[in-house]
Design a protein around this nucleic acid. Structure first.
Lengths: 333, 333
DNA sequence: TTGAAAGCGCTAACAG
DNA sequence: CTGTTAGCGCTTTCAA
């Protein structure tokens, strides 16, 4: 900047004014400065600026996701980017891999970079470690799961409601022998989905005791195994609800292996590419990651802009998409 | 930092030493400083540090992708993160949406944040705009497509070779009437795939003039339409090569609609989830985004560490995965 | 409309 | 082992 000032024959402050589009510079000087800065290929250093600037904003935020490569996460990421880009805010993205230690260290890493806000999918048992930062006025928004030990905004899917809708749908199609295949119960969303599903069975007057419930499934293969076991046991279910993407895939494989794809009904939580191209098409409870991301970004911006209202949890409704697998009737008799 | 120093009763430089794990501090002082910093919930400001530090590294890099929500891109993103995280490097990710203007402005935005390096999928006709930065010694690595107008490292898939392999595979299974459905020819990778495919036909002694070539397809629907047209025309092809994910999906839909999924052979460029669950399974030329990301990160780190060797293009081989659709024979007679 | 001086939080270079 | 001083590139404050 010194160099530009020297070359243009003006004071350093004038260069600053021009580069920041501040008023109070004559058009002539402006052009001279602009010329010099082009010539020197000069670019303002944001970091140095925010060091002194009032409010000390860096125009960057941190985004912590289960994995940036996870389709659900990356759609959220994209929606947030679209909402933040118009304000010139850049996003640091990082993957947590369900590791509470990584959560803490990545939060620390981003704090060290003085991000203006943080959006994260919590996995640590508690986010109390972030209390000092949050009260120190760092905007934070939690997505997908609600935080524990900190009061902050959260944007989540109506997990229990969606799962209940799946159960009601299957029951509505005449099924009385349902099964639940779910993720690790230490994951909040998995617990909620299980709860919603079971409660709906109760409301429909079905015995919930006899329902095969298999939890702790965290990948395709374990889900496939579990489905295989359940379906080959005595008195197998005529309909299955799978609480998550990978589990749905595992169930689909098991059904295919048993040649039961058109005999056993299936509703999966989470939509996925090509679900409609399967035989039969897979009925799902779709989440809306774009909406979650958009809302989270909006909340974060509001907080950054000084919104001091009480933290709130925002619920994004899920949606039942019928494609065939969930509408299969139970076998006659 | 002043505050911590005051509270611990030491000089400011001692605090700096402790926070940066520099040697030359007695264990006693160290503990005192650590205690004070905890008490004040103090955290080093990286940005301020890099302002003065020799080399002025910010431990952050910029990553420009077609879209962070694109599965291929996000796998690259993940692989890069994994390679960079051990060095404490954070990544700014952004989506280009095939918009050359965005490419330029995002590069500028990241430069203003003083990233230590840039990894990008180029879309602008030329990257000559980045010459000043690159020669000013900013490490840059291009992925997926080679840059134009700048000499820099690039990591790409062997597009032509992979497409040729697809052609050879189909020819090997007895097909003589092939068709090519491809993306917009202004995209380098699409051109390369087309070239590889056509050249292989030539090598096999097949007339390349009669081959239906449909280009400019950029989404599922246009690909579906094109496939429908080709397949219902006179003397339709018995095998199709689709140059990209979405195009493959479109072709799959067209085949399904015509009930021709088991009659017309199909090989698609790009692997995708559940490809093996289709009827028949879809044979693909798989790219390896994890390897691309890893290699790109390694090259970037090498450059950051001062590697001054001549820029080079690294080719990551693609792989033919047989799943059924590509092994269908042409109809007898 | 312009610029000089101070200082943001930190590290380099040098003293003690 | 520890501290002091200067200054990174910028914005603030205030004076011209």
């Amino acid at each position: 900047m010194r160099h530009v000032a020297a070359l243009a024959g003006v004071g350093i402050k004038t260069v600053s004014r021009v580069m920041n589009d501040e008023p109070g510079v004559s058009e002539a000087t402006r052009q001279r400065v602009l010329g010099a800065s082009q010539q020197l290929n000069y670019q303002l250093d944001m970091a140095a600026g925010s060091l002194r600037r009032t409010g000390r904003q860096t125009l960057s935020i941190g985004l912590l996701l289960p994995s940036v490569a996870n389709p659900f996460s990356s759609e959220i990421h994209r929606a947030m980017e679209d909402a933040l880009a118009p304000r010139g805010i850049a996003v640091f993205a990082a993957s947590l891999d369900d590791d509470p230690e990584r959560e803490k260290s990545l939060v620390a890493a981003f704090l060290g970079r003085r991000v203006d806000g943080l959006v994260l999918t919590p996995i640590a048992r508690s986010q109390a470690y972030a209390i000092p930062e949050h009260s120190r006025d760092l905007p934070m928004v939690f997505i997908d799961r609600e935080p524990v030990g900190v009061e902050a905004d959260a944007v989540v899917t109506d997990n229990a409601v969606g799962a209940a809708r799946a159960a009601a749908h299957l029951i509505g199609h005449g099924h009385t022998k349902l099964a639940y295949l779910g993720d690790r119960p230490d994951i909040q969303t998995a617990r909620e989905r299980r709860r919603g599903f079971i409660e709906e069975l109760g409301r429909a007057g079905q015995s919930t005791a006899a329902v095969p419930v298999r939890e702790g499934l965290h990948n395709e293969e374990s889900a496939r195994q579990a489905a295989l076991e359940i379906l080959t046991a005595e008195n197998p279910p005529t309909a299955i609800f799978s609480s998550q993407n990978l589990i749905t895939f595992g169930v689909m494989r098991a059904l295919k292996e048993l040649g039961a794809s058109r005999r056993v009904a299936l509703v999966g939580f989470d939509d996925f590419t090509l679900a409609d191209m399967m035989e039969p098409g897979i009925t799902v409870i779709a989440q809306h990651p774009e909406q979650i991301g958009k809302l989270a970004a909006e909340r974060l911006l509001a907080r950054i802009d000084g919104d001091g209202s009480a933290p709130q949890t925002y619920v994004v409704p899920s949606e039942l998409i019928q494609r065939g697998s969930g509408e299969l009737p139970p076998p006659a008799g």
